[in-house]
Computed example of a mutant assay.
Amino acid sequence: MFKLLGRDLAIDLGTANTLIYEQGRGIVLNEPSIVALRQEGNRKIPVAFGAEAKVMLGRTPDGVKVIRPVRTGVIADFEVAGLMLSHFLSKARKKSHSLLKPRVIVGVPSGITEVEKRAIRESIEGAAREVKLIDEAMAAAIGCKLPITEATASLIVDIGGGTTDIAIISLKDLVYSVSVRQGGDAMDEAIINYMRRRHHLLIGESTAELVKKTIGSAHPDYDAQEMEVRGRSLTSGAPSALNISGKEIREAISEVVSTIVAAIRQALENTPPELSGDIISHGISLAGGGALLKGLDRLISEELNVSARISDDALAAVAEGAGKCLDSMEIYSEVLF
Rank of each mutant, 00 (worst) to 15 (best):
M1P: 05
R7C: 02
L9D: 00
T15M: 01
I20D: 02
L29P: 06
A36T: 00
L37T: 12
R38W: 11
G41C: 12
N42S: 15
I45Q: 09
I45K: 11
I45T: 12
A48G: 08
F49P: 00
F49V: 00
V55F: 11
V55W: 09
T60G: 03
V64R: 08
V66Y: 03
V80Y: 12
M84K: 01
H87A: 12
F88C: 05
L89R: 00
R93N: 09
K95C: 07
H97G: 09
L99R: 14
K101I: 06
R103L: 02
V108N: 04
P109W: 04
S110Y: 11
E116Q: 15
I120W: 02
I120G: 00
E130W: 05
E130N: 11
E130I: 02
K132H: 15
K132I: 09
I134F: 06
D135S: 14
D135R: 08
A137V: 04
A140Y: 00
L146K: 13
L146C: 14
S154R: 03
I156D: 02
V157H: 04
I159A: 03
G161Q: 01
G162F: 00
D165M: 11
A167F: 07
A167I: 08
S177E: 07
V180A: 06
G183I: 01
D185H: 01
A186R: 06
I191W: 06
I192N: 01
L201E: 04
T207S: 04
E209G: 03
E209H: 06
L210A: 15
K213Y: 08
S217D: 05
P220M: 13
P220W: 13
D223L: 05
D223I: 06
D223K: 09
E226I: 09
G231H: 14
S233H: 05
T235Q: 10
A238V: 13
P239G: 04
A241H: 05
L242Y: 03
K247G: 07
E251D: 13
A252E: 03
I253R: 04
E255R: 09
S258K: 07
T259H: 02
A263H: 04
I264M: 03
R265A: 14
Q266V: 07
L268H: 01
L268E: 01
N270M: 13
E274M: 06
S276V: 09
G277T: 15
H282G: 08
H282I: 05
G288W: 00
L304N: 10
N305Y: 15
A314E: 11
L315A: 13
E320C: 12
E320M: 15
G321Q: 01
C325S: 13
D327H: 11
S328I: 04
